[in-house]
């Protein structure tokens, strides 16, 4: 096991213990049996018409240097789990959020805080649209989310 992986595993173990004691409303851990990949479901709880009644599936991938480096977080599309429509979420599930990039990430963040940030990002959105250039991006992108050089321009959402 790589030296950092032990650190990551320990930290994730701690988070898991905490999660097992309870998560905020609208967040459910679906799968968390290893320290590499977790699945969570999130819901938007208020009456935002864009997301009401929907459940979205999130996939967290943790590297060996988690929590120093951010996890890779994407929405996953399943028959009953759509990709939420949002000007910063591509239709393939990739999320453009500085919190999840090298710059915006902070090691004090955790799975729970990321989910809550996403929840609030959805809650605050009123635009029923995908990011500009969504189609080309989805067609052309072969990069992993963390390797994409996002251009964080929008401070309103």
């Amino acid at each position: 096991m790589a030296p950092g992986a032990q650190f990551a595993a320990k930290r994730l173990g701690k988070e898991l213990t905490k999660i097992s004691k309870g998560l905020p409303a609208g967040i459910v851990l679906v799968q968390g049996d290893n320290f590499e990949e977790w699945l969570l479901d999130i819901q938007v709880l208020d009456s935002n018409p864009l997301y009401m009644g929907q459940t979205y599936r999130l996939k967290f991938k943790f590297g060996s240097s988690y929590p120093i480096e951010p996890p890779e977080v994407v929405f996953v599309k399943l028959p009953d789990r759509p990709i939420p429509i949002h000007p910063h979420i591509y239709s393939n599930g990739i999320i453009c959020l500085d919190l999840l990039g090298q710059q915006g990430w902070s090691p004090v963040q955790n799975v729970e805080s990321v989910c809550m940030s996403l929840q609030s990002m959805l809650t605050g959105n009123t635009k029923n649209e995908r990011p500009p250039g969504d189609e080309e991006f989805v067609r052309g992108n072969r990069l992993r989310p963390k390797d994409i050089d996002f251009y964080y321009h929008d401070n309103n959402v």
Binding site: P24, L97, D98, L99, Q102, Q103, G104, V108, Q109, N110, E112, S113, M116, S117, S120, M121, G124, D149, F150, Y151, Y152, H153, D154, N155, V157
Partner: peptide, 20 residues
Amino acid sequence: APGPLLSPPASFMRTTRPRR
């Protein structure tokens, strides 16, 4: 002890150019 609520102003802060 940063609680679960990481306040949006900080986490949503945008910068105008990517820094590496």
